[in-house]
Design a protein around this nucleic acid. Sequence first.
DNA 1: GCAGTTGTTGCAACTTTTTGCAATAGCATT
DNA 2: AATGCTATTGCAAAAAGTTGCAACAACTGC
Lengths: 160, 160
Amino acid sequence: MRETPPTAADPWDEVPGRLRARGLRWTPQRRTLLAVLAATRGHVTGAELVERCRAMDPATIPSTVYRTLDVLEELGIVRHAHGLDGREEFHVLPAADHGHIWCSGCLGTWDVHADEAAALVAVLAQRRGFRVDLSHLSVVGLCEGCAGEGQPGREAQRAG
Amino acid sequence: MRETPPTAADPWDEVPGRLRARGLRWTPQRRTLLAVLAATRGHVTGAELVERCRAMDPATIPSTVYRTLDVLEELGIVRHAHGLDGREEFHVLPAADHGHIWCSGCLGTWDVHADEAAALVAVLAQRRGFRVDLSHLSVVGLCEGCAGEGQPGREAQRAG
DNA sequence: GCAGTTGTTGCAACTTTTTGCAATAGCATT
DNA sequence: AATGCTATTGCAAAAAGTTGCAACAACTGC
């Protein structure tokens, strides 16, 4: 077998230690949520995470999940942005910092790479000293397909 | 007396007609909300609007307000974006299309002028054919003051 | 001015998330 | 292994919106 890399092969293995290092605790409920998150790709809403946790442990309490998500966000293990309807969309272990765009027509979503947002970030930094949280950036509008087929006017559709 | 301008001196006076032109109706409940909106500057949440309507008419029903806001948004009379916590923030009669920035430290908010977002809008249009809805754009991060005093790291604070 | 059409309202139930608080249970220490 | 400190949990209630549906009432046409 291989040697274990210095900083742990699986980043999830570091979580209990990082919690304890801050005086926080590693509980069964947190173990459940972490297991769910480890199996998650892309975006998930809080409600979806609650549901998935309940699938693993029917005794799951929503408020515990939401509070744990707050803790994990402080540790940088998850990040959240807001979907079309403003609902929180969680994002696991962000490899590269990026934002999101949402099409209000087809409800599709895509990543916005850092370089695409670089100009906005730079302008706000220079003109206002504002530091943009890129992972929280959600840009809403119409994707190519929806912009084409719909009226050339504006989009008024709302997410359901 | 003066001549009335072709397109009505007060834009609010046009609303009943624009509703009827679409086969929609001008009701007392809508009159109340419009009166509240006419007296509103800057941002308001849906809940605040419900409260203000209730001040004028205690019989106000929340769902009626929210549904009317949807209609008014389709007419372009209000627009909404999302605040720090994802809650809807309505914006009356947008003179110039603009976005918003929110400081997750002090909860302050400022307008983002179209030219500040121009580069982002242009990049997404060119690279993806995506049409950004600028009035829906909410950029979160730390303002100059909060970025300075806090740790140079990241912001983890959440709106209450 | 009356009647019909159908857009709106009021209501109740439900979803999603937050908050306060007492009871529970991690974890470091002894 | 027992103990204490206090972070977490579970629960219940509340806030903010949304949705389905039957009853109501604008507006159009006659």
